[in-house]
Amino acid sequence: MKRWLPAPLLSVGLLALWLMLNRSLSPGNLLLGVVVAVVLPVLAAPLRPPGPVVRRPLRLLLLVLRVGGDVVLSGIEVVRGVLRARRAPPASRFVVVPLDLRNDHALAALAMITAVIPGTVWCELAPDRSRLLLHVFDLPGDEAVFIDHYKTRYERPLLEILP
């Protein structure tokens, strides 16, 4: 079964997309949609990277909850910073964070986490993946404290979850 449908969810999505784009449920469109949904994932299978190996699913759930909470709290802090910007402009900075992560999936997850947290922007990853350049909206304190906070809250759990 895996040989003919290497990515069943992708096949279902392709079929649904085909039918929506054609706006027709005619037998010809259904047949052509099924052919596209079966053939394209088979042809693209060698191009797909191997999936991640998740070691600690409970830790992953806790990380998702932590990120959700941080999104809300950071959103509030950014709103405060914008509202008081005339009186006290935010101390925006670029921060270089040394990384221990090397796993492609973990780095992608870290990039997504950084992207959804208001006030942080992933700017650049060093070619050897040893450093990350972040832009922080408001960093009035020491960079070392922020770096330790970032690594503790996001990088270390990802090191445990994705080897």
Rank of each mutant, 00 (worst) to 15 (best):
A109C: 04
S74T: 01
L73H: 12
L19H: 07
L133G: 05
G119K: 05
L62Y: 07
P52D: 06
L21W: 10
R66Y: 09
L133E: 01
L107G: 00
D128S: 05
P140W: 03
I113W: 05
L101E: 04
P163F: 08
R84E: 03
P140H: 09
F146Q: 00
P98G: 06
D142V: 00
T152P: 10
L73E: 08
A126L: 00
M112A: 13
L15G: 11
P90N: 08
D148V: 06
I76W: 05
P6F: 00
R86W: 12
R129D: 04
A109R: 05
V79P: 01
L62A: 13
V72W: 14
W122I: 02
V116P: 04
P27N: 13
G33L: 06
L132K: 02
W4Y: 15
V82E: 08
V82H: 01
R84V: 11
G119A: 02
D100E: 15
P8L: 09
R131M: 05
L10R: 08
K2V: 11
V35G: 03
T152C: 12
Y150E: 03
I161L: 05
E160V: 05
W18Y: 14
P57G: 11
L58A: 15
S26A: 15
V95M: 03
R59M: 15
P89Y: 10
V95T: 12
I113N: 02
L14C: 02
D138R: 07
P27C: 09
V64W: 07
R131F: 15
F94Y: 13
T114G: 07
H105T: 10
A45H: 12
V136G: 00
A88E: 13
A37Q: 05
E143H: 11
P140S: 06
N22K: 13
L133P: 01
S26G: 15
A37P: 01
L63T: 07
P41K: 06
L62V: 06
D142C: 10
G51H: 02
M1S: 14
A45N: 12
V95N: 02
L110C: 07
S74A: 15
C123T: 10
L5W: 09
L58G: 12
S74E: 09
R80A: 12
V95E: 06
L32D: 09
V71G: 00
N22C: 08
A144R: 11
A37K: 02
R3C: 08
L5E: 02
G69E: 06
F146L: 10
F146W: 05
L25W: 11
V64T: 12
L61C: 03
V12D: 02
T120H: 08
R48K: 14
L61D: 09
G68L: 10
L63K: 04
L162Y: 04
R153V: 08
A126R: 00
A108N: 09
L15F: 07
A91T: 12
V38W: 08
C123I: 15
T120M: 04
R66E: 06
W18V: 01
L139S: 01
D148Q: 14
R102D: 11
A106R: 00
N22R: 15
A126H: 15
V38K: 07
R86F: 12
P52G: 06
L60F: 06
P6R: 03
R66L: 14
M20E: 14
R59P: 04
H105M: 04
